[in-house]
Amino acid sequence: MRVILRNQGKEVELAGRRRVKDLLRELGLFPEAVLVIRGKELLTSDQVVGEEETIEVRPVVSGGAR
């Protein structure tokens, strides 16, 4: 699968299929800090991403010194 890490300007290719929660753990990301997007849909932590699919992991954390 192809994982687009938005705002980090990078993509990673992973072999095999995975549940979203396992994927985030592997990438070292907190589920609370991102949205996982496939096309026009949001994925929940129990959904499985197939090997041929592309997903975007979009950070939701924003802000400066406020």
Binding site: F30, E32, A65
Partner: peptide, 12 residues
């Protein structure tokens, strides 16, 4: 930004 570190701690 320090606030981003605080947010990470809170998300943990």
């Amino acid at each position: 930004a320090t606030s981003l570190v605080y947010k990470e701690v809170l998300n943990r």
